[in-house]
Design a protein around this nucleic acid. Structure first.
Lengths: 202, 202
DNA sequence: ATCCTCATGTAAGTGGTTACATGATTGT
DNA sequence: ACAATCATGTAACCACTTACATGAGGAT
């Protein structure tokens, strides 16, 4: 469903399915990728619904391009979706399920390792996003206060990534501290138990 | 794929598909729900793979229960999955796509409204989670430093929710500030433009 | 010659949802 | 009598992925 609206929204100027895959890849594709095999039938469906119209254009190389553009009805449909308020779907993080079930292993060292892995990955991604933003700042003299309306909205989505990763990193760090504290606790009670064992042995 | 492991992991004691739906609903279901129509065939598949074994047990009311339990092979499979490190899938937040495309509306007031809506919802959910944690703290004398291994891991996942919502809320607040600043900018340039208009009119 | 990019698509499979079918028991 | 809960399942659909098919043109 959502890909429909994304394609509709991405069609600022006429473009083919192949073009859209490229456009998608650069920007929104960072959080919403799509394959050509999904894009092509979606565009057809949107045309059947009269939200798009197409024309075939001969291509320099390869088969002729099918170029789509948004109709007035398409713009209305998109506007209605945007005005309907934020849409959610429940977030299914596989790694959360893994943590939830991780006591199956009865080994806090593994839980710790898992979190250190998470922390590392997210630290990388956070650095990546920071670089993207820095690069943007360096290249675009309008950044960040005089951006075009389009770029302004895109920048807001980029900021979401930064805040997400930062939040998750602090969660990782908190968790690592908790796990380490628990491991020390375990070690202490084990030491206590073995000392008791020694005592009874004497 | 993941539901397989979740069911495997949730089968600490023998349970039927119906039971599992209930178990799922209480804990992990907050971030990984599943319908009975998906659970039943999954359990069958897991049995065919020898990760589970089942027996029919007459029920007090309704049809006879099919009760599953994990085999040794099942435990191994689950352990392997947990030890394989964190699994990710790309997070597709529909609302992010909406924001990305929102400049289509050419109306910052609507973007602002959108973010205020987001902020409100997440503030609610954050409060909800805080309550859950407070309630837990009130009822469980072992909270938070002496929890069972199972509860400890569950608590870690709850903390993730808190950190997520907090991060997203700060993003919302930052965004709202940016949007308001931009609206003032727009108002100023409009005022400037109309003053220029007045000047040229004079 | 061979591979890469451009450009279109189909088919099969995955993971999940919604809707429907069946039927016993308990509580109001 | 009627609804709710217990308990099983099937069928159809949806969004998306992976793999495959086709073929032109330009680069190495």
């Amino acid at each position: 469903m959502s890909l429909d609206y994304i394609l509709l929204g991405l069609l600022r100027e006429p473009a083919s399915g192949y073009d859209l895959k490229g456009i998608l890849g650069k920007g929104i594709g960072h959080f919403w990728a799509a394959e050509l095999s999904q894009i092509y039938p979606t565009l057809r469906r949107l045309e059947k619904q009269r939200f798009l119209k197409s024309r075939r254009i001969a291509s320099k190389r390869g088969p002729s391009r099918v170029v789509y553009e948004t109709t007035a009805a398409g713009h209305e449909e998109l506007a209605a979706w945007l005005q309907a308020g934020p849409q959610f779907q429940d977030m299914r993080h596989i790694f959360l399920a893994q943590i939830y079930l991780m006591d199956e292993l009865c080994d806090l060292k593994q839980t710790l390792q898992f979190f250190e892995n998470l922390r590392m990955r997210w630290a990388f991604r956070l650095e990546g996003l920071k670089c993207v933003e820095k690069e943007w700042a360096r290249r675009d003299p309008l950044f960040p206060d005089r951006l075009s309306s389009e770029s302004f909205h895109r920048h807001l989505t980029l900021r979401m990534g930064l805040h997400s990763y930062r939040g998750w990193l602090t969660w990782c760090e908190e968790s690592i501290r908790r796990i380490q504290a628990r491991m020390e606790q375990e070690a202490a009670t084990n030491a206590g138990a073995s000392r008791v064992g020694d005592d009874t042995f004497l």
